[in-house]
Design a protein around this nucleic acid. Structure first.
Lengths: 202, 202
DNA sequence: TCATTCTATTGACAGATATTCAATAGTGGC
DNA sequence: GCCACTATTGAATATCTGTCAATAGAATGA
């Protein structure tokens, strides 16, 4: 581990992988404190103790850096909510959903920034978000390949997409003000609402 | 360059109300084409045929202008989805929800920009969005003051908030790809899902 | 009609941020 | 220890936001 003091600016030379990884970690970490727009090149460079030019060398520009950071945050979310490899399909989904709630609780600020970044103006950032949540939706079909619970059809995809938006809002709003609901109450609403909404399809 | 050959810009002088109104209209109109971040002071000033300085004079800055434009768009939404003054409570709500769907269909790009702006980093823009949707939620209670359908409690507010997020996502996603669902199918899901989710509360 | 006053409007200027690129300096190979 | 390679820098440029004293259109009063 290399210790860099704030007073002396020694030019530390890392391998491209190390440097890239360091900057992405820093970006994700700062994303929990500042929003993406406040995450200027200057701020990152100062915080990492490098020059602005280096960020451009690695990520091409602000946009490229944002994309890499958001992708990293999305990957974190996806990995940390992975369902267990064994078990009954419904159980595995329940564990995964519980993991999602716990992840958002433990990482609220960062998750909020991720959502903001995705909903923001940029096309490629939205694409990262959409791809991630489509992959999360896939778990409903891979966990139950026979389609006993849900069949992979366009209307069902539509419903799952909207249900995901609801769950996201529900968890984030609940964190701000639980309104008397326990974590288990919340999970009951989350798990019960998907079949309830699905049954409304023609 | 001092000598301007082609067109001498005629400085048109309006009353403050007229000018303010003109700029807000232009802002809302451009919001349907460009996102809020692309709506720079320069763009607005050019499009309106005025100087940058004037925008600062009227709105204090980019932030103030954004707030005014978003507030205007939110007001439009609220007014154009007003429920009819007479009728059965459930009928009035159904008309209002139908009006919401039709508004988003007719004004998709603008509504998307509104959502993006609200989800964006800024605190005061989010507040405008939240206040507007809280006012929309109020309609559930003012339409049915006796609370026969829903009672105004924190858990119910939480559910309505999440349900609104779902409806918003549902309509916007449906517009992109109806997935075989008709407008009536969509409204059936929308209207049926709120009591379905509400019944999951402890 | 003309002069005067008020203020809507402008344009030049300053500061911050994004981006580029030739020059610099670690680090590994010989 | 020398050399080649390339990670890294810092100065220069461009674009955007924000400020403010100066300008000019329009109403008022004679």
């Amino acid at each position: 581990m290399i210790h860099v003091t704030a007073t002396t600016p020694p030019r530390t030379r890392l391998t491209p992988d190390e440097r890239r990884s360091q900057l992405l970690d820093l970006g994700v970490r700062l994303l929990a404190v500042r929003s993406l727009e406040e995450l200027s090149i200057d701020v990152i460079a100062d915080e990492a103790g490098i020059s602005r030019g280096l960020l451009y060398h690695y990520f091409g520009g602000k946009q490229g850096f944002y994309e890499a950071v958001v992708q990293r945050a999305a990957d974190d979310l996806f990995e940390q909510t992975a369902p267990p490899p064994e078990g009954e399909p419904l159980d595995r989904l329940l564990v995964s959903l519980t993991g999602y709630v716990d992840y958002v609780v433990a990482n609220t600020a960062g998750y909020r920034s991720l959502v903001k970044a995705a909903s923001g103006s940029n096309e490629s950032l939205s694409a990262i978000y959409e791809t991630t949540f489509a992959a999360l939706a896939d778990r409903f079909f891979t966990a139950d390949p026979d389609g006993l619970v849900l069949q992979d059809t366009p209307p069902v995809r539509l419903i799952i997409h909207a249900w995901q938006a609801m769950v996201e809002d529900l968890v984030l709003t609940w964190i701000d003000d639980p309104a008397g609901l326990t974590r288990d109450d919340l999970l009951h609403v989350i798990t019960g609402s998907l079949p309830a909404i699905g049954s409304l399809l023609p």
